[in-house]
Amino acid sequence: MGQTIIVQDLQKRYGDVHAVDGVSFSVEEGEFFGILGPNGAGKTTTLEIIEGLRQADAGTVEVLGMSPWPRNPRLLPRIGVQLQASSFFERLTAREQIRTFASLYGIPAKKADDMLTVVGMADKAGTPAEKLSGGQAQRLSIACALVHDPEVLFLDEPSASLDPQARRNLWDLLRSINDAGRTVVLTTHYLDEAESLCDRVAIMDHGKILELGPPATLVRGLDSATHISLATGTLSLPAAREVAGPDASVTDDGVTVTIATRAPAPVLTELADRNLLTGIQVRGATLEDVFLHLTGREYRA
C-alpha cells in the first residue's frame, strides 16, 4: 500500500518555543494514525503543518503525493479537517453551516443534512452555532470535516468535550470511516482512545516523537507489571503479600488492594482457590504506562 502522508524532519519554532523539533513519520493509505501527547506537546502544530495551515521552518511534508504548502487547491478537496478550535460562520444555524461548507465542495444540501443526522445533530439543525453546547459544536465541526467524504481525515482532539455516549458513537463513526478505506489521523489526550482506535500511535512530548508503533506493541515492549485489584477488606495485606509472592508489590489505598506482578497466572490461580475472583480487576500495561515509562512522569491529560 502507498504512503498517504510522509513527514520528514519537521521543525517549527515560535520564538524560544521549539513547538515541533525534528518530527518524522509516515502514514499508510487506509491507516488509522494517532498522535498522543500532553498539552503543548506540539500535536496541533504538527497536524496544521501537514494540513497546510502553517509553514514549517524546515522539513518536508507530502500528502497524497503533493505538498500542502503553499495552499494547494488540488489537495484541498481530498482532505477533511476538524480544527481544534471550532470555526463557524456567525449567526448561522447548524444546518446552514454544514450546507455552506458542503457547497464549497460542490456537495448537495441533502447530503449535508444526512451528515448532521450521522453525528446525531438532526434535532439541533435549527440552532445557531453560538448556542450549541461544547460537545454539540464539536460534533458539528466533525460533520463539516466529513461532509465531502475526504480521502484523508485530520481530527484535532475530536473527542474533547464529548460525553461518554457521544464519544463511543464518534469512535464507531471513525472506525466505519476507516473501514471504508479512508486514512484517518487524529490527535488525542486519551490513551484509551488511541489504544482502541489507532493502528499506530506516535507519542509526542516537547515537540519530539518519543515512540511510534502499534499500541499493543508499545505496551508489550514495556515489560511492565499486570495490576490485579480487589476491594480492600476482601483480602488482608499480609495475606495479599503471601498470595503475590516475593517479586510483586502490594499497595492498599484504603479502597482497593493492588497487586502488581510480572507473573499474574499463579497469583490469579491462588485467588481462584481462595474463591476471591468476584469483583476482581485485572489490568495489563496501557499506553499510560508507556507514557510514564518514556517520560518518567505521570500522564496528565
Partner: peptide
C-alpha cells in the same frame, strides 16, 4: 478571529 478564514483556507474555494 473566529478561525473561519482558516477553515475556508482548507476548502477548495479561491
Amino acid at each position: 478571529q473566529k478561525k473561519i478564514l482558516r477553515r475556508l483556507r482548507l476548502a477548495p474555494v479561491s
